[in-house]
Simulated assay, not measured.
Amino acid sequence: MRTSPLDRVMDAVATVREDLAAAHRRDPAATDDLAILLTAPGLHAIWAHRIAHRLWTRGARLPALVLAQGVRSVTGVEIHPGATIGRRFFIDHGMGVVVGETAEVGDDVMLYHGVTLGGRSMERVKRHPTVEDGVTIGAGARVLGPVVLGEGSQIGANAVVVKDVPARATAVGIPATVRTGAAHAEEQVDPAIWI
């Protein structure tokens, strides 16, 4: 069923509103919609990616790549037009974020600056991560290869992830390991400390 131009505009407006609400939820500095709309490079990058992805999937690959590269030079965020990204995706600060061609990102995912969702293969296969719903990836983290980050998992700042991370787990370190509960209650810390 084809949608009318008005329906497409209304869908786009609803998506922008969702993105603004996500920014308010995830960024304590985000207090004013107009300021967010005009100054959030992570949001500008995802909005442009949605256009580039639509071009890419319709076969207009060169224009999609040119748009993606232009956005990279303006925002510091490089998202390949082939990457699939869900709703309410939020990049805080944005600078230095790279999302590869075969990456799949679910809904309600948050990335901090300097995150790479990269590949480890030169083959034309699924070579980038799958990030399930509700994942948070800390500043400077590298997630490499066709690994799966389970729903609600957290990746610590500067971690290098090369293996799957289970749902609702926290992975930290180089190479990243899943951090489990401490043996003594007084040693337990909020997992957000690693993000």
Rank of each mutant, 00 (worst) to 15 (best):
V115H: 00
T102C: 11
P191S: 11
A30T: 04
L37K: 01
L67W: 11
D33L: 05
T136P: 00
T116C: 09
A167R: 06
G70K: 08
Q69L: 13
G173R: 00
A23W: 00
A167N: 05
R179H: 14
A157K: 03
V135C: 07
A23C: 10
M110C: 10
A103F: 04
M110L: 14
V99L: 09
R142G: 02
N158Y: 08
I174T: 15
A64F: 03
W194G: 04
E104N: 14
L43S: 01
V9N: 07
P166W: 10
V165A: 02
D164T: 09
A22H: 02
E132H: 13
V189L: 09
D92H: 06
R54K: 12
V16Q: 04
R127G: 02
V160W: 01
V147F: 08
P5R: 12
T170F: 02
A64C: 06
V16A: 12
T31E: 11
P175G: 10
V125F: 13
R72I: 07
D164C: 09
R2A: 15
V99A: 03
I36M: 04
R26F: 09
S153I: 07
G181T: 08
P146R: 03
T15E: 09
T102E: 06
D11N: 12
V74S: 14
G152N: 07
L55W: 11
G42D: 02
V105T: 06
V125W: 15
P175Y: 07
R25S: 11
V99E: 01
V189G: 12
E186A: 14
